[in-house]
Nucleic acid binder design. Structure first.
Lengths: 136, 136
DNA sequence: TGTTTACCCTATTAAGTCGATAGGAAATAT
DNA sequence: ATATTTCCTATCGACTTAATAGGGTAAACA
């Protein structure tokens, strides 16, 4: 299940991308327009900023704005930042690999093979979509 | 992230499928062989039995056994029974549809379109795999 | 018939996560 | 200076998950 954090983050990014100019947009405006708790959105935008997708400006007339072009923001990286691993099981994660505690041997694990297929098909979808594809 | 319940359930099903005959296998044997908490596995096998994949036999020499052929047990339905909805968002779920509380209009939701793609690609993987594909 | 074996069922718990909230600190514009 | 808006930390309640406990019930076998 997709977390609210990710969903809200995607909506906020899309909202910013749909703005014609790159003037700062206040958190309150985004929260109101997208039905998001303002404080919660605050923390989400903060992590997106730290990752380098968003710029921010404090004080009056401040807010958040896109730094990169929407087409240059692939869903793969956005999803990893907001949601974490794309793989359903840590032992098939490319960026967040961990050994499964209950598996003595990955190669002989029946679930392993299936989860690799799911991971790859999901990665293909995210790889084929950028923020530009979420715009109007 | 795949729940332990689902992972254990898949492993147990695979274990039973790999048995040459269809003699009952005790919970304790499966739990030991697959590194699963016995009591936890007990409840998982119970739900799989209620769904119609497994038969059980009580008393001495009892246990669980496959009812259907592995090739006739598609991952799609197994995953839905164990894990629940395949879609990442309820508003794109085919079998567990629910309206998203924060979305006034699905058609104009930017996340909606993306999640449909993910759902379809995942469904294709599960549709192409049956329990037989998880066997040795 | 009695006893063992193993499934069946309910309740509980410890730990973790998630979404949200609160309160203030720091920076910027007027 | 003062109002405005982002920035940061801390906390909370509700929910879920994985696991455990304890006993009940049915079937097989001697």
């Amino acid at each position: 299940m997709l977390s609210k954090k990710t969903k809200y983050g995607l909506k906020a990014l899309t909202y910013l991308a749909n703005k014609k100019d790159r003037e700062p947009v206040q958190i309150a405006e985004i929260a109101l327009h997208e039905n998001i708790s303002q404080k919660f959105l605050e923390s989400i935008l903060l992590t997106l900023r730290k990752t380098g997708y968003l710029g921010s400006k404090k004080g009056k007339g401040g807010g958040y704005y896109l730094i990169k072009e929407p087409a240059e923001i692939p869903m793969t990286t956005v999803m990893r930042v907001l949601e974490g691993p794309i793989a359903l099981v840590p032992c098939v994660s490319l960026n967040f690999y961990e050994k499964c505690s209950d598996c003595p041997d990955e190669a002989s694990c029946s679930v392993h093979k299936l989860m690799i297929q799911v991971r790859d098909s999901t990665l293909e979808v995210f790889g084929n979509n950028s923020l530009a594809d979420l715009m109007d």
